[in-house]
Write a protein that binds this DNA or RNA. Structure first.
Length: 261
DNA sequence: AAAGCTATCAACCGCAATAAC
DNA sequence: CGTTATTGCGGTTGATAGCTT
């Protein structure tokens, strides 16, 4: 949680450094990596505007939830991933307080776990170690569309890219030998999990474009954050205007507050 | 207690799209 | 209208905490 004084540190880019110094020993106590390998402007910081922005979005944002995913959230991630594949930002918009990065990380861990368990000799209790094992949902078809969407240009193949029937690169081939393939995982999910859980739509109205979560990290920010998390893919096009509306304190300049130029 | 292993998650990379000049 | 800067995104890496042996 970032208090008012901390928020105000963002009022202009010059204060970011202060915030950074303060944050250096933040609650988690983890040392941060301050290397900037992008070679951009750093404004005396070992940070670019870009990395500042990223850190705000993924870590410092007062509306972010902390802690483990709830069973509901896990379910939602699975549901929406089945729908949209690796469209993490889109999924994140449906999960108030969660970032695409967080969801991505979760998914990666999650799928790795699944892969490992699956790889083990068939065990009758084989499932995810958490409740999400029973929360897998129906379709896998859209994952193909997904992977088309991901990595438009580089053609890299991700470990956690659920891949579908996409042509597999070297990495995937390797995985077939070393690790349980994502295709297999999805097949497994298909076979085992259909109808196990109540469809997400029954829990949260999709029409609302957002899940009305009972708690947000910051009540003060709730209303504004709602609109952030409510943003749909198309709405996100308006992100620039959102920036001005939601974070007036940090967007005093017409250009980005993160830029150091 | 120490070493090895695993899980977690913040941050980096690089590309594309968009905005500002 | 071209150039440059910024933002958004998905993929990936690596440090570290915590667990196991």
């Amino acid at each position: 949680m970032v208090n008012q004084a901390e928020k105000e540190l963002f009022t202009n880019k010059r204060t970011i450094k202060k915030e950074w110094e303060r944050d250096e020993n933040d609650a988690r106590g983890k040392p941060k990596r301050f290397m900037d390998r992008t070679g951009g402007h750093t404004s005396g910081l070992n940070r670019t505007g870009k990395s500042c922005r990223l850190r705000w979005v993924n870590y410092l944002h007062p509306g972010l939830k902390r802690g483990k995913m709830t069973p509901q959230e896990e379910r939602l991630v699975l549901e929406f991933h089945a729908k949209w594949g690796n469209r993490w930002s889109k999924i994140a918009r449906k999960l108030p307080g969660r970032t695409d990065n967080e969801i991505k990380n979760y998914w990666r861990t999650h799928m790795r776990k699944k892969a490992q368990e699956k790889k083990r000799p068939a065990s009758p209790t084989s499932s995810f170690s958490n409740c999400s094992s029973s929360s897998m949902t129906t379709t896998t078809t859209n994952t193909q569309e997904t992977s088309c969407h991901s990595r438009k240009s580089s053609g890299k193949v991700s470990f956690y890219d659920t891949g579908g029937s996409r042509s597999t690169g070297d990495m995937m081939n390797q995985e077939t030998e070393d690790v349980y393939s994502m295709d297999d995982i999805w097949r497994e999910i298909d076979h085992s999990a259909v109808n196990i859980i109540k469809p997400v739509k029954d829990i949260y109205s999709e029409q609302s474009h957002c899940l009305s979560y009972p708690t947000l990290a910051s009540p003060t920010w709730e209303s504004s954050l709602d609109s952030i998390w409510n943003m749909d893919a198309d709405q996100s096009k308006m992100s620039s205007s959102f920036a001005n509306d939601q974070f007036p304190f940090c967007f005093q300049h017409s250009r980005s507050p993160w830029s150091s130029g």
